[in-house]
Design a binder for these strands. Structure first.
Length: 241
DNA sequence: ATCGGTACCTGCACGC
DNA sequence: TGCGTGCAGGTACCGA
């Protein structure tokens, strides 16, 4: 491949050195680590991509105002486009420490390990679900949707949950993620896959960005509060501390 | 080690 | 038509 970069914000490291390090490499595979994408290259190198809020990797897409990287491959081009520039690109040897430090995959973690990790945390449930060292890959939408399905208040203290409620949350996380993946994700305003296609799970959101609308279970108006500086949506009647 | 708060960006919808 | 405000799929970094 060959690579060119525009702007300095999204790229970690020197643009020239990164382009030189990528030149002539072959892509061996692509793996996901929570929200980090690892493009495995030959020579024990990896190109690490995090999409942030508005990042997109697009295969054979049209470059635009917010295109920060163009990777030219044998079979087409891969663009990195990101209007808010919260995403990051990095050429590294192996996995960076912050990627290795991620918590377990939510679709793989056992109920026992989940419960044990939960008991060690004093923070609010919503903040904990957003913490990538607790579980990798859960973001603001799926944190709110999972807590709603489990009937747990976003301000509930993690360590105080027990038994049945932990089991419900473990199941709710798995269900909401599995359904969202099957639906191609949630496209609110920006998200598209590598072929530019939108997901459809947003039409099945129960609480996320539904402030004031009736709860689908009990009809009470959905409330919005801030937890860990993030908009948090929940049903004040169905979700208990 | 863990926590909460702040900084980093652009774009859009809204009210005046 | 502008202009100010608030909001948005996230993480890194800082001090307590």
């Amino acid at each position: 491949m060959s690579a060119e970069f525009h702007g300095l914000r999204v790229l970690r490291g020197d643009p020239e050195a990164t382009a030189a390090g990528l030149a002539g490499r072959r892509v061996r595979g692509v793996r996901r680590h929570g929200k980090f994408i690892e493009i495995e290259l030959d020579g024990e190198r990896s190109f690490i991509v995090h999409l942030g809020m508005t990042g997109k990797l697009l295969l054979n897409g049209a470059p635009g105002k917010h295109t920060h990287a163009i990777l030219t491959l044998d079979r087409g081009t891969l663009l990195y486009d990101d209007s808010r520039q919260f995403g990051r690109l990095e050429l590294s040897s192996g996995l960076p420490a912050r990627v290795q430090a991620l918590g377990p995959e939510p679709l793989e973690v056992t109920l026992g390990e989940f419960a044990e990790r939960l008991h060690r945390r004093k923070t609010k449930m919503k903040a904990l679900l957003l913490n990538q060292k607790f579980l990798r890959g859960i973001g603001n939408i799926y944190a709110d949707e999972a807590l709603f399905r489990a009937g747990i208040h976003p301000l509930a203290t993690a360590a105080r949950l027990k038994g049945e409620r932990i089991r419900k949350l473990h199941a709710a996380i798995r269900e909401v993620l599995a359904e969202a993946i099957a639906a191609g994700g949630s496209s609110i305003s920006d998200y598209v896959d590598v072929d530019g296609r939108q997901g459809s799970f947003q039409v099945r959101h129960n609480v996320y960005q539904k402030t004031g609308e009736p709860c689908p279970r009990c009809g009470a108006p959905i409330r919005r509060i801030l937890v860990a500086q993030r908009g948090t949506h929940f049903c004040p009647k169905c979700q208990k501390k």
